[in-house]
Design a protein around this nucleic acid. Sequence first.
DNA 1: TATTTTCCTACTATGTCAATAGGTATTTCT
DNA 2: AGAAATACCTATTGACATAGTAGGAAAATA
Lengths: 132, 132
Amino acid sequence: MISTRGRYAIRVLLDIAEHQQDGYVPMKDVANRQGLSLKYLEQILPALTKNNIVEGIQGKGGGYRLVRLPEEYTIGEILRITERDLAPVACLAEGAEKCARKDFCQTIELWEGLYDVINNYLDSKTIADLMK
Amino acid sequence: MISTRGRYAIRVLLDIAEHQQDGYVPMKDVANRQGLSLKYLEQILPALTKNNIVEGIQGKGGGYRLVRLPEEYTIGEILRITERDLAPVACLAEGAEKCARKDFCQTIELWEGLYDVINNYLDSKTIADLMK
DNA sequence: TATTTTCCTACTATGTCAATAGGTATTTCT
DNA sequence: AGAAATACCTATTGACATAGTAGGAAAATA
């Protein structure tokens, strides 16, 4: 299940996209508009700057802005950065130790297929798609 | 993320399907073959009997057997019974209180679409599909 | 009557989530 | 120069779910 961390990140990006024509968007404003905890958002955003999703400027008049066009961010990309893992089962998670049953497991293909379906969907949607 | 509860349920059904030609299949055997905790499986199976997925017979010589053909059980059905929820976000979960943002939420359609994609995939696969 | 099975319920260790909290570094504005 | 506003960093916490363990009761057969 997708946590608030990833969902809030998407809402933040959407909010920035819709307000950055006036310059850098301070997270305080986003938190107010979206009804979210500023302190919590401040914990999420560093992941987005480190991965070149947004640019953050400190100091008075600072804030955040997108570094690409909204249609160039897929939801999958955002969630892969902000969520711990998108894999639907533990054995497909990043950094999972190799499952001993893998070679003869009858269900692994099922889960790989599910994973594909999820990734394909999330990579087919962009921030721009959410803006209308 | 799908928990062991749902994943084990599928493996149990698969195991029963492959062994029930000899009569009722005791969970002890399934646990041994699958390398799972009998006590834990005993906690999962009542949900499957109550929902008419398997028939359970107590006493010596007892065990479980499927009440339908393997191709008549979709993975989605099993997981909907054994997992707490398949919804990818909290606001779509069964019994979730109505979200205050729902009427103007820009992301709800995204999550509903993801939910659809997941359900469609899981309902397209059956226990029989896993048996080869 | 002994044995094997399902069934029922309580308990527990561990980990993650969703924040809250307090502070530091940086930049701009007055 | 100083005040204010902002991003950035890290620690802590309460609540909850997961993944079992445990002990036994009920039912059916041999």
